[in-house]
Design a protein around this nucleic acid. Sequence first.
DNA 1: GTATTATTTAGATATACATCTAAATATCTA
DNA 2: TAGATATTTAGATGTATATCTAAATAATAC
Lengths: 99, 99
Amino acid sequence: MPLSQTIQALSDANRRKILDLLKKGELPVAEINKKLDITGATLSHHLDILKRADLLSVRREGQQMIYSLNLSVFEEAAEQLVKFFEVKKPKNKSPQWRG
Amino acid sequence: MPLSQTIQALSDANRRKILDLLKKGELPVAEINKKLDITGATLSHHLDILKRADLLSVRREGQQMIYSLNLSVFEEAAEQLVKFFEVKKPKNKSPQWRG
DNA sequence: GTATTATTTAGATATACATCTAAATATCTA
DNA sequence: TAGATATTTAGATGTATATCTAAATAATAC
């Protein structure tokens, strides 16, 4: 997944909350919904975005849809972000733009 | 800085490009602008957002404004994100929601 | 001081998106 | 099959925001 899509997925507070909840283990939609102050439709929309970013998987269990974190993708996203934040200290202090 | 503001700042591709450029060292606005396909006004807007997220500092040098990365804040943001991505593996496999 | 260069600010526009209500789909139960 | 429950989809709405042009501010050069 491109970093842009991951960051995009993380850019909403409710979606971060969803990820946080799922870090502790899989959950059906209704359980997630209890923790968030949004309608089911809105939650479904957020879940869809996280799913398209490949951060979540779903399976059906009876009437319920059970969402879980895609651990490998989640960790890979973390690595990409860490890489983005890496700053290679330049040896020479001369500005890159003068001259 | 709250994580929300950092992620918000990172959520635009041009802003990520700006941060990337400044990782290599400080730059005046005009130099940054050469690398981005946006007007000066738009660039100024993005710089303002990054500055408000405390990720950048500015100083004046003659007519030029020279922007640089706030390294400590940048690294702190990285730590916050890493923390967000930490998954505590549960010892027991039983779902948190059944029962 | 006037012109020139560098950047920011103001104001407008168009698009993206979080949210809602209502309707549709899917499963289970009686 | 009819009704109840769980979730998603469709469609509408309001707000946020990336972008632009034009004008304002700041510093230097003549």
